[in-house]
């Protein structure tokens, strides 16, 4: 029995490096739009206001491999925090079926809601220490715009995708997407609600492909 288990572990470990090496890689750069002006918070009727300004949120893109891929058995829970009157991260790509928690890390109420067709919800007002942390499961692909009913400058995005093969660019637009299955696909770069660029790609195991989205 012990010998059989040893042989089994040996077999698994002997094929593991091959599995890790398998899969294609796509890297490149997405031309990002110019940065928007940072939001201005309306403080007209707040008796108490704190100093400080809202931070600029540089544009980022999401690069993903489009196609019909099997859904994983379980998906990790993601988080969008409300901190310093902004959503962190401001853009979150997720797989369809992912549960997202919305912890409030400010010392004031927030009221997160979305009227987007992909997910319509309103979490109401809740305190930082409230448990369980309010959460939603995003079960339809599409773009979900997050807003706060109390702080109208707050804006966040969740991009719900049918694929598990996605990555966010850095602020310069560079990306690297690894562990991709071999085959012919469409590689897409989501830039904003009106702009998604795409390119056909043919992926081979162990190959690194360079794709730019000008």
């Amino acid at each position: 029995m012990r010998l059989r288990r040893l042989l089994w572990f040996n077999a698994v470990f002997s094929i593991m490096p091959v599995a890790l090496l398998a899969g294609a890689v796509v890297e490149g750069r997405v031309e990002l739009p110019k940065s928007h002006s940072a939001p201005v918070q309306a403080k007209r009727y707040e008796i108490v206001t704190k100093a400080g300004v809202l931070s600029t949120q540089p544009p980022l893109a999401v690069v993903y491999l489009d196609g019909a891929f099997p859904r994983p058995a379980s998906l990790p829970t993601k988080e969008v925090e409300q901190k310093d009157l902004t959503f962190i991260p401001a853009l979150l790509p997720i797989r369809v079926g992912t549960r997202v928690e919305f912890p409030n890390l400010d010392d004031t109420y927030h009221n997160i809601f979305s009227y987007s067709p992909a997910k319509r919800f309103d979490l109401g007002r809740y305190r930082a220490e409230e448990r369980p942390i309010p959460a939603e499961v995003f079960d339809k692909p599409g773009l979900v715009t997050l807003r706060c009913d109390i702080h109208d400058h707050m804006r966040g995005l969740i991009l719900v995708l049918n694929t598990s093969y996605f990555v966010m660019t850095d602020t310069d637009g560079h990306f690297r997407l690894s562990g991709l299955p071999a085959g012919r696909y469409t590689l897409k770069a989501w830039i904003d609600s009106r702009t998604t660029r795409e390119k056909p790609v043919e992926l081979k195991d162990g190959q690194t492909l360079h794709v730019d989205f000008p």
Partner: peptide, 19 residues
């Protein structure tokens, strides 16, 4: 949302922001 972006402006390295 596009209008909001268009009606928000900043200058002096974001030290002056107007909406």
């Amino acid at each position: 949302d596009q209008v909001d972006n268009a009606l928000t402006a900043s200058a002096f390295h974001d030290n002056l922001r107007v909406r």
